[in-house]
């Protein structure tokens, strides 16, 4: 069977020490048995390594930062689409998702397919709404609260006790052991990601994660649970192992029955000593370790492309446990000329 030719645009090429999911997603796509894929990279910064990884990314275009707004983004994508004729677009960066979700119908009209959650699905899993989310879908969630000023930190001692977790709207989380530390974390995170700041009850246990994909009709098309076996000093995964965890799989299945999630996602959970699972966060896209799923026998990014193209996709029924991933970094040699071209022309 000959492979189908298709062009896919992918963002999140920041394959640095705490990598974005773009390059892992691309690797998964390149492994596809069904498609022969031309990859168009979408980058925000000239230093995103993916721009220079020509064995994986065929051509990269700079796109405006999310804060420039949807009008700017669509103008740029229209230009890129004219050059490349994109079939499917996979955004991988949390902060850009709002814009892409809002633009999904416009993109569809232009002939670019996506497979993204609806805005309501996206919004109801926001960190600051997670308690309500947990109640609605029957998942335990550590108590959390959003605050908008450091003046509110004093009251937290009674409500939460220390330690507690201070989290940003999009990224960043710090464990604070005292009001002073909470104050410092508030200032640091809010200066970067704005308000509100989310305060979360500290839940001791081991972290278990699950990468999955939903078909938008309530079915879990694929899912692989993982535990980080080794983390970097920044708390990011260094190595991880695929787990057999039927409880976690059921949590994911039930959640999808309820919210009919459409697209890739990651569940970040804490499993306590009493084997209770607490939901810490739902990422509305594939995680950077999604390639472990491919290694374990489930190609989620490929499934996402097929769903985006409107195909009927059967759920994966199994995966191999005992597969692990180990991250490594690699010093890529780049000619300055390439940096010059992406910096001045915005495409490479």
């Amino acid at each position: 069977m000959s492979k189908r030719k298709i062009t896919i645009a992918v963002s999140g090429l920041n394959n640095i020490d705490s990598p974005g999911p773009g390059i892992p997603v691309i690797r998964a796509l390149k492994d596809s048995e069904l498609f022969e894929i031309r990859i168009i990279g979408l980058s925000y910064d000239t230093m995103e390594p993916g721009i220079y990884m020509h064995d994986l990314v065929d051509k990269t275009y700079q796109i405006p930062l999310p804060s420039a707004g949807q009008q700017s983004l669509i103008t740029r994508l229209t230009y890129i689409h004219q050059q490349e004729k994109i079939d499917v677009l996979i955004p991988n960066f949390d902060a850009e998702l709002f814009n892409f979700i809002k633009l999904q119908d416009t993109l569809k009209k232009m002939g670019i397919d996506t497979f993204l959650p609806a805005l309501e699905q996206f919004e109801e899993r926001q960190k600051w709404a997670l308690n309500t989310f947990g109640e609605k879908y029957g998942i335990k969630v550590p108590k959390s609260k959003q605050i908008n000023s450091t003046a509110e930190i004093h009251a937290l001692t009674h409500e939460f006790g220390y330690p507690l977790v201070v989290k940003g709207k999009f990224y960043d989380a710090t464990v604070a052991y005292s009001p002073d530390q909470a104050m410092a974390a508030f200032n640091k995170i809010s200066s970067k990601w704005g308000l509100p700041i989310i305060i979360q009850q500290f839940t001791p246990g081991i972290e278990v994660n699950l990468t999955g994909i939903g078909d938008g009709k309530g079915n879990l098309i694929g899912a692989v649970p993982m535990r980080k076996t080794y983390i970097t000093d920044k708390g990011k995964a260094w190595a991880g192992i695929a787990l057999e965890d039927e409880t976690l799989m059921n949590i994911a299945r039930n959640m999808l029955k309820g919210n009919k999630w459409r697209g890739g996602f990651e569940l970040e959970m804490i499993k306590t000593d009493k084997r209770e699972y607490y939901l810490i966060e739902i990422n509305p896209r594939f995680p950077a370790w999604v390639y472990l799923a491919v290694g374990a026998g489930q190609n989620h990014p490929e499934a996402l492309v097929r769903l985006a193209l409107g195909e009927d996709v059967k759920p994966y029924e199994s995966y191999e446990t005992g597969k692990m991933f180990i991250r490594y970094s690699y010093d890529k040699i780049v000619d300055l000329k390439e940096f010059e071209i992406i910096s001045t022309l915005g495409e490479l």
């Binding site: 925000y44 910064d45 000239t46 230093m47 275009y61 700079q62 796109i63 405006p64 930062l65 420039a68 707004g69 009008q71 700017s72 983004l73 103008t75 740029r76 994508l77 230009y79 910096s343 915005g346 495409e347």
Partner: peptide, 15 residues
């Protein structure tokens, strides 16, 4: 200066 993290100008013209 070309800074990393700088607002890139590509496509931001509408602004």
């Amino acid at each position: 200066r070309i800074n990393t993290g700088m607002m890139n100008k590509f496509g931001t013209k509408t602004e």
